[in-house]
Design a protein around this nucleic acid. Structure first.
Lengths: 135, 135
DNA sequence: CAAGTACTTTAGAATAATTCCAAAGATGAA
DNA sequence: TTCATCTTTGGAATTATTCTAAAGTACTTG
């Protein structure tokens, strides 16, 4: 061990969420090790393995809350296929169409120029770039 | 009238699809007037109004076939929300998050630079840019 | 143009992802 | 503690989409 484990409870309180047993368990899995892309199902399977029982509905609730709180970013790549990305910083995605894999790539080097201004009465929320590739 | 109506049957044959009554009816609605964004449901409702009965399953089949044939482009903007765009040329989208509206914008002026090369063993399929805005 | 074969359509069942619900349980303020 | 509020839960409900098997239609060949 090189450090103490993060205080997920405090972190959750900071964003206005009660640090319940299942939210902390999910946060630990999500944020415990590098950036991840998860689906509700995959996260549910993972957290079950930690012996803390969490219902699938709770996983959905929590992912939505974490996203709303800015802890996660949702990426929709195909009908019925939505990922939650623990990397909320500026970056874009590769999507491998054949197998549904998603990979981040940094937006440092990427510049987008010439975007028209948002339609009247709207303000920019985010720019998503998905680079689709095939094997 | 300033011109004859396009020969949808021939057009469908060209891409390897039999020009059935329902495919022609759907093509007419889709391609008869400027570029459109439709969902399976909205297209189904529209074509029903033309008095040519088409089952919802057929609308789904046909949209998928048209997309595979390159006649349509599918745009996924939110979980469970997928649009089919009759504009298959290079362009990008505005997505108004509040009401689910989708608008095209030309990619003429837009330049994207610094994209990393596709992961090993993959080739570029397409780059999707979705500019998300809120009211 | 008659026939046969292959392709399509159809209604409804099936599936998949996600949300809703009402009841039971946990949390935090006083 | 105690209570009001927020959460979790399992299962039902919903939504979007695909599947299925039977009935119908389009193209080919003779």
């Amino acid at each position: 061990m090189t450090g103490t484990s993060p205080d997920y409870a405090a972190h959750l309180r900071d964003v206005g969420l009660r640090p319940t047993r299942q939210r902390v368990a999910l946060a630990r899995v999500l944020f415990g090790s590098g950036h991840r892309h998860v689906t509700a199902e995959s996260l549910h399977a993972e957290v079950k393995a930690t012996r803390i029982p969490v219902a699938l509905a709770t996983v959905y609730n929590t992912l939505n809350q974490f996203r709303d709180a800015g802890l996660l970013r949702e990426v929709v790549v195909a009908p019925g296929r939505s990922y939650f990305d623990t990397n909320t910083g500026h970056h874009h995605h590769f999507f491998v169409e054949d197998d549904g894999e998603l990979h981040d790539f940094p937006s440092d080097k990427v510049t987008i120029e010439g975007l028209p201004s948002p339609p009247k009465g709207t303000r920019l929320s985010r720019v998503d770039v998905v680079v689709r590739v095939r094997r």
